[in-house]
Design a protein around this nucleic acid. Structure first.
Length: 647
RNA sequence: GCCGGCUUAGCUCAGCUGGUAGAGCACCCGCCUUGUAAGCGGGAGGUCGCAGGUUCGAUCCCUGCAGCCGGCACCA
């Protein structure tokens, strides 16, 4: 006999091989009817599974949160059956559950289009209405391959080979239709319900490899009930409203145009934001002892040959054409490091000069694949808050740790407190001996351990010249963005002939750390706009306050306020147009102006303002002097405020 | 780069099976001097992404190219 423990703590004995369904039915027929799967020791399993060992058992009903992935997975199978019924000859591949839904990849000579969705969804509803039982069979490896081969399902045959030896080959049937699948599934197709929707079609490479054939992927979403589906669709609409490309236009920050794919036209307001971030980072770098420099945009390609970029990074680089009067080919810099090494090399350096921290807001150009471009988040021309720190080998851990700490402090100033660290080790395409890589990776790991922060390994994702740490921010709506990076480089300084004089009088090649905090200013701004949904904090807002007149009688008073505020270093302007105040409030609210200072006859007579904050209908009347003082205090950058508080 | 889709006024979008275009908002002008998320009236604005082709005739059909969008691959 085996002993099963129930959620209420009760223990009962059963004959080995009893199925979950039998047990549920024994407890109550209605429970058996409601149950869609079970969990054995916390692991989801088919209700039809025979239980052979002692275990904790729970019955999972359809409204159990754990049933959600089953609903989605079953829905994927229903989708696959529907597609194969409508278009015989289509090959099935894989159909996993993903966040908020599922997808299924198909192979067919002709791609699917969203226009096919109504027909597919209709067929899916028929399959669900038939309420066919999901049944599991275990087949032999050879039989499985033969069956799928006979049906022309070549991708499935290939999948069978990826299943490790010793694992059962499981086939799930829903009526006549069946699929190779790890499971588990619910009991009946009817349990999928009706709250599902096909979302989009996309191409996807077989097994994620661009050398493989492209499949057609159909994405869908599925929920326990219609209300949750509706809520999800509503959420998607809301997310669209905070898209930085849309907000960038509405807030008049920047634009793109066809002539310059992947390059930003920064408008005055966007550029103010950009410069505000640069000023912030400049202060933070000065406090940490960096020296800011500037290096050429175009450098003779021979330098990039020496650095190894031409060999390992060529396809990402823009090169000039040979000029009639000058046979040289120049490279538009894709990175700042070779330039910074030139500055290091200029003049003899001593070990006493180390660590030497060279920083640049360097604009780099990289030939990103056209399909990768995405607003500000992925561009071809971008500005890095880049720095290269020249040190001795002994200083690697200590300097890495210092950068790590400053990075976290900086992110926190923007409200990013959930930061993950990824450690990327040697890639296949790399410079330098393995012994050098061993050393670099070990030093980075040591620094990570000293920081005491958790990290994950990102295998083979390092830069071609060294391993790296990558800092991933989680934004206000839970999306992850890679921003900062610290890279240990034991290759480039030597290749480019950099050295310092050690205490012994010998020439020694320095170690170089590459680091970026924002990463790309362009990308960081895109992330910020979405993170704040356009509601930038006062210190970042391009226009911090807008004075709105109610009648033209207040025009000159309004102009006085703007002048006084501007002299106080604030970014304030006025709307003197002959429009109703409701009209002005609406317009400037949509433009995400943080503060509206409304002035009419009353205010101009008593030298006050009526303040309205973005996102709140409240109005607060204050004397102008008080309002100005409040604005000044509130609009300070976080690092400046910290210094003021400390003083 | 790959797969699919899209490209009409500054923005959002209509435009039936081919007969050279329309709305709302924005813009300009006039009226209203206005009290916290859209006052009223009028006007102007488009080589329908670019280049070819089919046709008596193309925004519409076909081909190529570009950009964008959604994924995939790649990545700050």
């Amino acid at each position: 006999m085996i002993t099963l423990t129930f959620p209420d703590g009760a223990r009962r004995q059963y004959a080995p091989g009893t199925t979950g369904f039998e047990i549920a039915k024994g407890i109550s027929p209605s429970l058996a009817k409601r149950t869609v799967a079970m969990a054995l020791d916390g692991m989801l399993a088919d209700l039809s599974d025979r239980i052979e060992r002692d275990a904790k058992i729970e019955f999972v009903t359809r409204d159990d949160p754990r049933a959600l992935e089953l609903i989605r997975h079953d829905c994927a199978h229903v989708l696959a059956e529907a597609v194969q019924t409508l278009w015989p000859g289509t090959q099935v591949t894989i159909g996993p559950v993903i966040e908020n839904g599922f997808y299924y990849d198909f192979f067919r000579n002709e791609a699917f289009s969203p226009e096919d969705f109504p027909a597919i969804e209709k067929k899916m509803r028929e399959i669900i209405a038939k309420d066919k039982p999901f049944t599991k069979e275990v087949w032999s490896r050879e039989d499985t391959k033969q069956v799928f081969a006979d049906r022309g399902e070549n991708f499935k045959v290939e999948l069978v080979d990826t299943i490790p030896a010793g694992e059962p080959i499981k086939i799930y049937k829903q009526g006549d239709w069946f699929d190779l699948c790890r499971g588990p599934h619910m009991t009946l197709t009817g349990k999928v319900g009706s709250a599902f929707k096909l979302m989009k079609v996309a191409g996807a490479y077989w097994r994620g490899d661009s050398r493989n054939p492209m499949l057609t992927r159909i994405y869908g979403t599925a929920w326990p009930d219609q209300a949750q589906l509706d809520q999800y669709l509503h959420q998607l609409e809301e997310a669209e409203k905070r898209d930085h490309r849309r907000l960038g236009r509405e807030m008049d920050l920047f634009h793109f145009q066809e002539d310059a794919p992947g390059a930003v036209f920064w408008h005055a307001k966007g550029w103010t934001l950009f410069e505000t971030l640069v000023a912030y980072m400049r202060r933070r770098q000065q406090e940490a002892g960096y020296l800011e420099v500037n290096t050429p945009q175009l450098i003779d390609s021979s330098l990039w040959v020496a650095s190894g970029h031409m060999e390992k990074f060529r396809e990402m680089m823009f090169l000039t054409e040979k000029h009639e009067d000058d046979e040289r080919v120049y490279t538009i810099k894709p990175m700042n490091c070779p330039g910074h090494i030139q500055i290091f090399k200029n003049g003899l350096k001593s070990y006493r000069d180390l660590p030497l921290k060279i920083a640049e807001f360097g604009k780099v150009h990289r030939f990103e694949p056209s399909g990768a471009l995405h607003g500000l988040l992925r561009v071809r021309a971008f500005t890095q808050d880049d720095a290269h720190i020249f040190i001795t080998e002994e200083q690697i851990a200590e300097q890495t740790l210092a950068i790590n700490n400053q990075l976290l402090s900086i992110y926190s100033d923007f409200g990013f407190d959930d930061v993950r660290i990824k450690f990327s080790d040697r890639p296949s395409k790399r410079l330098g001996d393995d012994a050098v890589w061993d050393k670099a990776e070990a030093a980075l790991k040591l620094a990570l351990e000293k920081s005491g922060r958790p990290w994950t390994l990102n295998e083979g994702e390092g830069a071609f010249y060294g391993p790296k740490l990558e800092y991933v921010l989680r934004d206000a709506i839970g999306r992850d963005w890679q921003c900062g990076t610290i890279q240990v480089d034991l290759n480039l300084p030597g290749r480019l002939g950099a050295f310092y004089i050690a205490p012994s009088g010998e020439k020694v090649v320095p170690v170089m750390l590459h680091r970026a905090m924002f990463g790309s200013l362009e990308r960081f701004i895109g992330i910020l706009v979405e993170h704040y949904a356009g509601h930038l904090p006062l210190w970042l807002a391009p226009i911090q306050a807008r004075v709105c007149t109610i009648t033209s009688d207040a025009d000159s008073y309004a102009s006085d306020l703007v002048q006084a505020a501007t002299r106080a270093g604030l970014r304030v302007d006025a709307d003197l147009r002959n429009e109703k105040i409701t009209y002005k409030v609406r317009e400037h609210s949509l433009a995400k102006i943080p503060l509206l200072l409304v002035v009419g006859k009353k205010e101009s007579a008593e030298r006050s303002v009526s303040i309205r904050r973005l996102g709140s209908p409240e109005q607060k009347s204050m004397a102008w002097e008080d309002a100005l003082a409040m604005l000044r205090a509130e609009s300070g950058p976080p690092d400046v405020k910290r210094l003021q508080e400390a003083a």
